[in-house]
Write a protein that binds this DNA or RNA. Structure first.
Lengths: 244, 244
DNA sequence: TCGCTATCGATAGTTACAGTATCCATTATG
DNA sequence: CATAATGGATACTGTAACTATCGATAGCGA
């Protein structure tokens, strides 16, 4: 176990903790108080750390994910669903209620239609326009709708204008994601466990990658549009040095 | 204060807590133990809840953000930087060290070049290829590089193939983001506070929106590529019903 | 074989975060 | 004037993710 700790950089008590939580499979017993850990354990620990640190998953979600990963015949679509739920459920607390305690509806009673929310309606429209066919329980639906509703409630209706561009971007990203899965399938002649790996890692870490690239592109685009930030005097020190 | 609580759906003790933490500006004093809260407080509370619940920011980051937002002459580029740091720093713990305690470098000593990491090199290349000019301290650089390094360390080198598509998508998204800011600027003749709002809300919530849309697009694309998931028997119940 | 260290497993403790709860001296309100 | 609420301070709760300690072995070198 010391060796496993050394090879992964994770403290021994933490490894014990992961064993307890079912994140890490037990080693092969050699005696009542001795076990042998192999490369599969090293890989598993690395994956766990990646999901938690880079992907930001809580440990319970990571446990679900790795459990699903080692279930033998799990079809790709199910693995996708599990990965998606894992990264989404930290953003969707429990039941998406607004907790408005009293007369808190934002002032204007909208149309009498039984439409759930503006956001949901917009997303449904978007799906129709793009030909996206998904299950109603796809966590992305609630997530995206929630953001749109929040834009509205913050009086940022102008931000709804970004929706189409975001959708186009999402399409591109999803195409790349699935292409990676397909490539893995081809290389390994449809080895489900390899495909699961790609799906899990790609889905969970992909969010971070995309977010990071977005920040870079934002700053670059910002320079393009507002080349010299107005030479305003401010209390905090700003860094407006030359870009790298 | 009860009224503020009722109008926002946030418990009174929580509002007190936000006041203490500097998230919420104090009300106008009418007597030593009485204060008047107005619409600005309602808006602020809604913004705080949105940043925390939808954007997933920790309270300390939200405090930085709202503080920056109300700083008078803050240039747009600085606001962008603050918003970006707020959404990034939960993914970048402190100093991005690998904490490998002993002989933990993944077995093969790579080339003798002083290149920081493969990820950083790839991102630098990408920036050059796309004409992205950014400061070296842009949090997206570290974030994206980290994900790429993690792909490698997990033996998922094949996922590096998605990078170009992701970058193109990020470009699209950033263009839309900046277009929204520009539109707001035009509408309000360059009102910095309105622009700050758009930048903050767009940056923080945009990540969630994009992530949500990605999940939808992924599932849709998954159906397109793997129309009928192989009829495998598995322990857990799968839902492969008709899409909505 | 002795002694040292490490292991497994269990239980308990720690730190950080995000609130909640309680108390108190006022103060508004019916 | 009595009740209820307010602002402010302090203290407490609950969860997440570890971290420390303990006790009974078990391996390994001298």
């Amino acid at each position: 176990m010391r060796e496993l700790s050394d090879r992964t950089g994770v403290a021994v008590p933490t490894l014990k903790f992961y064993l307890r939580e079912g994140l890490l499979h037990a080693g092969e017993r050699t005696s009542p108080n001795q076990a042998q850990y192999d490369d599969s354990h090293v890989d598993r620990v690395r994956l766990i750390r990646a999901l938690i640190e880079v992907g930001g998953l809580p440990i319970a979600r990571a446990a679900e994910v790795v459990t699903a990963m080692q279930t033998p015949g799990m079809p790709v679509s199910s693995v996708f669903g599990i990965a998606q739920r894992a990264v989404s459920e930290r953003a969707l607390p429990d039941d998406t209620d607004a907790t408005y305690s009293a007369g808190a509806v934002p002032s204007d009673a909208r149309g009498p239609l039984p439409t759930r929310t503006t956001g949901e309606a917009l997303i449904a429209e978007l799906c129709a326009a793009r030909g996206w066919a998904v299950h109603a329980n796809n966590p992305g639906l609630a997530m995206a709708a929630r953001v749109l509703d929040t834009y509205e409630s913050l009086g940022q209706r102008r931000l709804l204008a970004v929706l189409d561009a975001y959708a186009a971007a999402a399409d591109r990203v999803a195409a790349a994601d699935l292409a990676a899965v397909a490539a893995a399938a081809e290389e390994t002649r449809g080895d489900l466990s390899v495909m699961s790996d790609v799906v899990i890692v790609g889905t969970v870490l992909g969010d971070s990658l995309l977010a990071g690239l977005r920040r870079i592109a934002q700053e670059a685009e910002s320079f393009r549009r507002f080349p010299a930030p107005p030479p305003a005097a401010s209390a905090t020190p700003h860094q407006q040095d030359p870009p790298c």
